[in-house]
Design a protein around this nucleic acid. Structure first.
Lengths: 227, 227
DNA sequence: TAGATTGTTAATCGATTAACAATC
DNA sequence: TAGATTGTTAATCGATTAACAATC
């Protein structure tokens, strides 16, 4: 701790060994990498095969040097004078983020926001699957929201979490209902809750809540750009 | 530049004068302050009058020392042994962020996401107003989505931007339609675009694009929590 | 008073950037 | 080759944290 060893690699947390088995990425690095991944995926869809650090910088608002630095910490992925091959960079970044597997998600609330989320193809692009959609409204139960997604009643919650190995519960319910759903998810053993409502949720310490709603995101951004 | 003056205040950018007239907040500070503001507003709604830096830390995942530091840079807003009075802190932070005025927003797309955004009360809480909602679908035009919001055709765009002094255009349209709407907004003189689609938008340098969709937000978060 | 929580210091750590040689 | 863009260095700057006295 007190003795300076060698210039520690800045890509990792506290103890800076190389990119071996058990290292955890620095939080900010992981955040940026996942941002790059999203842009890369989209650029590919738009027909690009190659991208430069400067182009990535334009889309992400991250400095281009920072981007090259982030990537070169894990290998030499680019071609000087050319840029990065998108396909190969995507698979490299996925490897770094360790998100090559499949993860199952349960979504709560089949209102406007829930349906907007359910019909996004972002998840399939990145190896996540929404395997269940719940709503309290009896009239909605049974509706087919997308090809493979039928609205289910809350009474199925426990069985679904167990049978489908749900790792994340996503709340797209009204603020007033959010705490109740969170409680049921916690009771069912889910450890990660993504909260799109504005409610401030109370959960046990072993459960992580991430709160962010479209409107609140917009709010943040406005504070910057308007001044 | 090269000469160390005095320990510059870390709350501001490059040239560190005190909190006088023309100083710009450091980006990260502004981001955190707006996050605090959202939590404070919500805590107030839930009946709290006072909040401690530790409680704010629990909700925002920002270190409590960091929070006290952010706030104490602008004044002594708290009471030792008690915490912060929510009402007074809200008005102080608003003053710091200079967002006491009203700003008008135009929203594009009356689909699920657009309607979810339109019916959020986050904006009214923070002094922003969605004054117009546009859609290309002739069947939707004329529909009343919320009490004061009727779906309008794109042909009204220019007039509305001018008459209502629109400063931000929010895109909740399909990816394929996003660039077209962006072009029209640019032509109408709008300088800030908030893009909820996944499209990568091409705009002139004087226009700022902020891209983030609910599904992509979720994606980021999952990369963290699942590893 | 006793307990709690702020305001502030001091030290470390990580992020950011300009600049440029290497090289495709 | 000439032009473009990466990979990397070196330096600075800002963020983060633990710790604790001040004080409500």
């Amino acid at each position: 701790m007190s003795v300076k060893e060698s210039p520690a690699t800045p890509h990792f947390g506290s103890d800076g060994a190389s990119n071996g088995a058990g290292d955890r990425l620095a939080l900010a690095v992981a955040a940026r990498l996942s941002r790059y991944l999203q842009i890369l995926t989209q650029a590919k869809k738009m027909g690009k095969d190659t991208i430069s650090s400067q182009e990535l910088a334009d889309y992400t608002h991250v400095n281009s040097t920072q981007i090259r630095r982030d990537l070169s910490g894990f290998g030499k992925f680019g071609k000087r004078g050319v840029g990065y091959d998108i396909d190969s960079l995507v698979s490299q970044v996925r490897k770094i983020l360790r998100t090559t597997g499949q993860h199952n998600i349960a979504l709560f609330g089949a209102g406007h926001l829930g349906q907007a989320i359910a019909s996004s193809d972002v998840f399939a692009d990145h190896g996540f699957r929404i395997v269940a959609l719940f709503d309290t409204d009896g009239d909605k139960v049974g509706n087919e929201v997308t090809a493979n997604l039928v609205v289910r009643p809350y009474s199925d919650l426990r069985a679904v979490v167990r049978d489908e190995q749900i790792v994340v519960g996503v709340l797209a319910v009204p603020s007033g209902a959010a705490q109740g759903v969170a409680d049921e998810l916690v009771a069912a053993g889910v450890k990660i809750i993504f909260n799109y409502s504005e409610a401030l949720l109370q959960v046990p310490p072993e459960v992580t809540v991430h709160t962010s709603s479209p409107a609140v995101d917009l709010l943040y951004a406005l504070y910057f750009y308007l001044t």
